[in-house]
């Protein structure tokens, strides 16, 4: 079981309140991603749940039990660190065994669990090596192995993929998702990468300056961002935001349209502009179009679009998918 409830949890470092009182419930078995720009408090929040930082107020409950002041080791949580935090002087086997050794698990059971974890994570051939002799991806898997054998109530991941190169990152993303499918254990995952958030999460928590901006499934956040910050943060490339005269036509302070919800044409459309840069990715083409009065917008076209710098284009936004925000930046119905 792993239902985690944060009730008015807050954190201050001296005078500075990095997390104002915050409520959040994480259901058992959920894959929750905390996402936000660096310095938004997402790692601090994770460390509060882990017990590596004291809360300054409020309550943390794990499966209904008050764990606010419990030491990290008593919370039944396992953590995978950004740096992996493997013990460099121990072999892979000993690294994975360490939490069980601390818990006094009998040797036989230890071995059984290590072998199972190693098999699941493709580490069987590396059990006697030291972390220093492993590649980044392998180290990552050892860190996960060390977490798995504890059979924790929940896994905590602190930006686990940020030290891997791009290709490995995609692979590990899949592995972690698969792991979640298999174990059905609660996972809390911190990242600044919205792609990781979108692809892995059951539920995304968008944070800014210690405040939860929105909580929801990836598609909810994509379809109905609650405010301008979420609108700009979720989705790649970013949503185009247009203010001023054009927004007033829709009686909004700001209107937003995603690059993929724009229709391109060379002869007619709602907005007229000139192509500044075109990026051909093969599958898609991204055009950066200067709209004179409304600034530059990004538009996605299909891979075969052959438009170049200086070409004149017309853009028609899909009215169904147009987002409207009021003067305070909040979503309008």
């Amino acid at each position: 079981m792993g239902r985690i409830t944060l009730d008015k949890v807050k954190k201050a470092f001296g005078e500075v309140e990095v997390i104002p009182p915050l409520d959040l419930t994480i259901e058992d078995g959920e894959f929750v991603v905390f996402v936000g720009p660096s310095g938004c408090g997402k790692s601090t929040l994770l460390r509060l749940i882990a017990g590596l930082e004291d809360v300054s107020g409020g309550q943390i409950r794990i499966d209904g039990q008050d764990a606010t002041h419990a030491p990290p080791s008593k919370r039944g949580l396992a953590m995978v660190f950004q740096s992996y935090a493997l013990y460099p002087h121990m072999s892979v086997r000993k690294n994975i065994a360490f939490p069980m050794k601390m818990a006094g698990v009998p040797q036989e059971e230890q071995n059984r669990k290590i072998d199972a974890a190693a098999k699941a994570l493709n580490l069987t051939d590396y059990l006697e090596r030291r972390p220093g002799q492993l590649s980044g991806g392998q180290r990552q898997r050892v860190a996960i192995g060390r977490a798995i054998v504890r059979e924790p109530a929940a896994f905590l991941f602190d930006e686990p993929l940020s030290n891997l190169d791009a290709a490995l990152r995609v692979g590990m993303r899949l592995e972690i998702s698969e792991l979640h499918e298999r174990l059905k254990t609660t996972m809390i995952y911190v990242t600044h990468d919205q792609v990781e958030a979108m692809t892995m999460a059951d539920k995304i928590v968008v944070l800014r300056a210690g405040v939860i901006e929105q909580v929801g499934s990836p598609l909810e956040l994509y379809r109905t961002p609650r405010n301008l910050f979420v609108a700009g943060f979720i989705g790649s490339p970013k949503m185009n935001l247009i203010q001023g005269q054009e927004a007033k036509k829709y009686s909004a302070g700001t209107i937003g349209i995603r690059p993929e919800h724009c229709l391109l044409s060379t002869d007619s459309g709602t907005w007229e502009g000139t192509v500044v840069v075109s990026e051909h990715l093969g599958s898609d083409t991204f055009l950066y179009v200067d709209l004179k009065d409304h600034g530059t917008v990004t538009v996605r076209g299909n891979g075969e679009v052959s438009l170049h710098h200086g070409d004149r284009v017309f853009i028609t936004p899909d009215m169904e998918k147009l987002h409207r925000f009021d003067d305070k930046g909040l979503r309008m119905p």
């Binding site: 882990a50 590596l52 030491p71 990290p72 080791s73 949580l77 396992a78 953590m79 660190f81 950004q82 740096s83 935090a85 493997l86 013990y87 460099p88 002087h89 360490f98 939490p99 601390m102 818990a103 060390r146 504890r150």
Partner: peptide, 26 residues
């Protein structure tokens, strides 16, 4: 790295075993 000591703490090590098994060897 402080991470490693925190990892030990998460893994259930108390102060003594943290110093004995993790810090001292390193």
């Amino acid at each position: 790295p402080g991470d490693i000591l925190e990892a030990a703490r998460m893994d259930g090590a108390n102060l003594m075993s943290e110093i004995l098994y993790v810090l001292t060897p390193m």
